[in-house]
């Protein structure tokens, strides 16, 4: 997937973002970081053609996504929205199996094989015990996992996950990151947004920093996630620390103690 000179505006006056260029290769994991309202979600929606770019193009295997039909595109690209609730109390399995929609014709319904695939994905995410529970009556984190099972059931080449770790507990966050890593080794590409630079360090993946309508930096987390860059996008002092026992890096905010004084 290649993104060239992408530009988007809701009201045709101010651009949400402009001059966005990057590409996603097979097996890539790309973490998009940026402050609230920097356009991460909008960008993901443009990648899956839910919103249409006002300039530039998104190409999938050298074809503009706007030239593909919804069905063609959704066989290749799976998208997980940030927050979601359903009106009707579908069971978790019924939700997961909805991921088969791109592979079914308009007049058909999922078969047993489809349900089996959905069930296997629920199992992989550790929520198969919820399969028959109503989607509307489970917790936000469990809903998130159910939706992830749904996009996996879609069997796309590229996964676009909008803050997949929000609502998840500490353990599930780590497990999900491990799953992303695992998926990327099976040939999938994963693009996800996050508010935690640490997630990028854990995956040691590629990082794209969004700020002021632009991608200010794209590259390996080691080179992109510097203390200066983090200060630049989040406006706080951050220390990037190397933890020897785990041989990994973490970000620690530096609290200005003077601010707390009376």
């Amino acid at each position: 997937m290649d993104i060239k000179n992408a530009k988007f505006s809701y009201d045709k006056k101010t651009n949400v973002f402009e001059e966005i260029n990057f590409s996603v290769q097979k097996n890539d994991v790309l973490c998009i970081l940026g402050p609230n309202g920097s356009g991460k979600t909008t960008l993901l929606k443009c990648l899956t053609n839910i919103l249409q770019l006002t300039g530039g193009e998104v190409c999938l295997h050298n074809k503009n996504v706007q030239s593909l039909s919804r069905q063609q595109l959704s066989k290749k690209v799976g998208y997980l929205p940030q927050t979601h609730s359903a009106l009707f109390p579908f069971s978790v399995l019924e939700v997961a199996v909805m991921g088969r929609a791109p592979h079914l014709t308009m007049m058909s319904a999922p078969t047993e094989a489809d349900y089996k695939l959905a069930q296997t994905n629920l199992e992989m995410l550790g929520i198969s015990h919820l399969a028959s529970r109503p989607y509307t009556k489970i917790s936000g984190g469990q809903r998130q996992l159910a939706l992830i099972a749904m996009v996996l059931t879609q069997q796309p080449d590229i996964l676009l996950l909008d803050e997949p770790t929000s609502h998840l507990d500490f353990g599930n966050q780590v497990r999900l990151l491990e799953l992303i890593q695992k998926l990327s080794t099976t040939g999938l590409s994963v693009v996800f947004t996050s508010h935690f630079p640490d997630h990028a360090f854990q995956l040691s993946c590629k990082v794209a920093l969004m700020n002021n309508k632009q991608l200010i930096n794209v590259g390996d987390c080691e080179t992109v996630l510097t203390e200066q860059n983090l200060k630049k996008i989040y406006g706080i002092d951050v220390k990037v620390v190397h933890v020897q026992t785990t041989d990994s890096k973490v970000c620690v905010p530096i609290r200005n103690k003077n601010n707390c004084a009376e």
Binding site: K45, T48, N49, I50, S69, R70, Q71, Q72, L73, S74, K75, G78, Y79, P81, H84, A86, L87, F88, F90, E94, V95, M98, G99, A101, P102, L104, M106, M107, S108, A109, P110, Q154
Partner: peptide
């Protein structure tokens, strides 16, 4: 009756249904 399963997907929300390839 023929297109009934798709109503499930439409009821999940517009963007969600689009992401699932439904026009």
């Amino acid at each position: 009756l023929l297109i009934r399963w798709r109503i499930n997907i439409v009821s999940m929300g517009e963007e969600e249904a689009q992401a699932l390839g439904v026009d």
